[in-house]
Design a binder for these strands. Structure first.
Lengths: 331, 331
DNA sequence: GTGAAAGCGCTAACAG
DNA sequence: CTGTTAGCGCTTTCAC
């Protein structure tokens, strides 16, 4: 560029300190002086250099966001939540996808810290001791969004996955004979484990059958939902309901079942997870466990701003409400 | 933090200049010295400060990305392409959603420039003179991704929207009596105009009827697709085919038609645009115009790295290939 | 092959 | 209310 705070100072016949004050909205400047400076800024087309400011102030007003995959609907929605609040508080987002690979996650964190981000929002499948160590060394606040850490030592924003899943199972109408299938995935391993536990406990409470065949390990894709349906329907005693840990897999289940001539919901109930826009884009429409992705992102970022600005925090581990949105794929 | 290049220098008994050389892989350092420095770096847990480096070198290795809406499947995919190439070349991404509002776009650009980004990738609905001016003042390269600018003065990456749409119309089987409907949206106005022109020209060539009723102005949402279907089917002479400018709207069209008891593709052909994952998640599966979103992002970023590193550019306005992926919603 | 020194553009005491 | 003066941590000539 070229034009600096110093050029502005000269043009306005003041010191650079005064220019700095004007730029930063410091009130201790006489209105006339302020105006002189503002005029000079406009005439010169001066644009403050945030890098220099960052070096001097040790604050960059940018936060790092480590996300598994930005092209995934679920995370993209979450990212939007983060972003909206960030821009509301004048922060910038440095965004990187990790594909949930630990080395990549750790590398990204390091790179972001080199860039002197003021804080980090982390989304990942599991939080290992190595992660915790790295977060500690970071010296800036790190928030977990839609990510659980068993040690509970980090600020985080989640829903109660265990309970949500349990309710999903309970929402299925009574019929004590046949079982309920569950389609899981390795993505977000920790969270899916919690869902699985909720699923198992709920079955137990209802004295419904459970065995290894009750669970299908998908990969979070539509196609693995189709495979799951085929698998379940080929059992000697097919389940009367299938719950998938993502909407996309649930859509696959619906279509897979329909391709087998199974009527939904009459012969098979299907429940998805996340209540993404997809839930409305299928016939029958999909009953799904609403997980407020956007809000998780927004609340995470808000929490981070509080941490950054030294505001009081009542609660560092936040649990947002979930709810089952009933549509036509059940009952 | 605390530990600086200076601490490392002291510990290794060299000058900070030498440490700097080691960090930057400068070859003019004696191997033994280099090793001493590296040891010191590790012992101290030194992490270079990219902000200071940015100030001194006037390069930040970060690029700004202005995107309409990161939670939109189409753009999210594009963003992933940008990101993958960026990280391959050690650049960071500063990402912000503009909602295609001009003021926001311009503001974001300004903010990013203050942060001294080395370049910008811009996605937006239309490129006005004001945009061009702002891009000029930027003093860093700006690339348009999936965004057309009539003046053709900026580097850009797109497909041939006009031609793609024309081919979509041509792909519909002959039947000279009834017309073909088009569902458009204000999003990406410029691009949709080109599609519209391709649509109109193709109709003309096939001597198919065209009037105002042939076009439905949607809003890019699933629901507006449903409305479009209702609207078209209520015409005295309903079209025998409907093309939507996005897959999500096309899905709406399919379901809207099916809800009216219309059989697809027997009674109505439907074609979407973008060939997103959605195209496989409907019954019947959706024929769609493949637009390589990921590639558009990747190629844009690659182009930017070339510009940034002074590599030779053969072509600044890149047109990527498109293609119609036929599925069960047509013929 | 290595060191000294001068900035990069701005913030932040500290005076006055 | 305003100016002076140090840095922030690193890169980059220019010497030696």
């Amino acid at each position: 560029m070229g034009v600096t705070i110093y050029d502005v100072a000269k043009k306005a016949n003041v010191s650079m300190a005064t220019v700095s004050r004007v730029i930063n909205g410091n009130t201790n400047v006489k209105p006339t002086t302020r105006q002189k400076v503002i005029d000079a800024i406009n005439e010169l087309g001066f644009r403050p250099n945030a890098v220099a400011r960052g070096l001097a102030s040790r604050k960059t007003t940018s936060v790092g966001v480590i996300i598994p995959d930005i092209s995934n609907l679920f995370f993209a929605e979450l990212a939007r939540g983060i972003e909206d609040i960030a821009s509301m508080y004048k922060y910038h987002i440095i965004l990187s996808s990790s594909d949930q690979q630990k080395t990549k996650e750790l590398d990204l964190l390091d790179n972001m810290l080199e860039k002197q981000v003021d804080g980090v929002i982390f989304m990942g499948s599991s939080v290992t001791d190595e992660h915790i160590e790295a977060f500690d060394r970071a010296n800036v606040p790190v928030i977990l969004a839609a990510t659980v850490d068993e040690s509970q030592s980090l600020p985080s924003v989640n829903i109660d996955y265990y309970q949500a899943m349990k309710e999903a199972v309970e929402s299925i109408s009574d019929d004590t004979t046949s079982g309920i299938g569950f389609v899981t995935s390795p993505l977000n391993a920790k969270i899916n484990d919690m869902k699985k536990q909720g699923y198992i406990d709920a079955l137990k409470e209802r004295s419904l059958p459970f065995n290894e065949e009750s669970i299908f390990d998908g990969d979070d894709s539509y196609n693995s939902g189709i495979e799951a349906a085929n698998q379940f329907l080929s059992l000697s005693q097919p389940p009367k309901a299938i719950i998938a840990s993502s909407d996309e897999m649930a859509l696959g289940v619906i279509h897979g079942a329909q391709d087998n001539g199974v009527k939904i919901p009459e012969e098979l109930n299907v429940i998805g997870f996340d209540n993404t826009r997809l839930a409305n884009m299928v016939r029958p429409t999909l009953t799904s466990v609403l997980q407020p992705m956007y809000d998780i992102g927004a609340v995470s970022m808000r929490l981070l701003t509080k941490l950054l600005q030294g505001e009081d925090i009542e609660q560092e581990q936040i649990t947002l409400p979930h709810r089952i949105v009933e549509r036509d794929s059940t009952k």
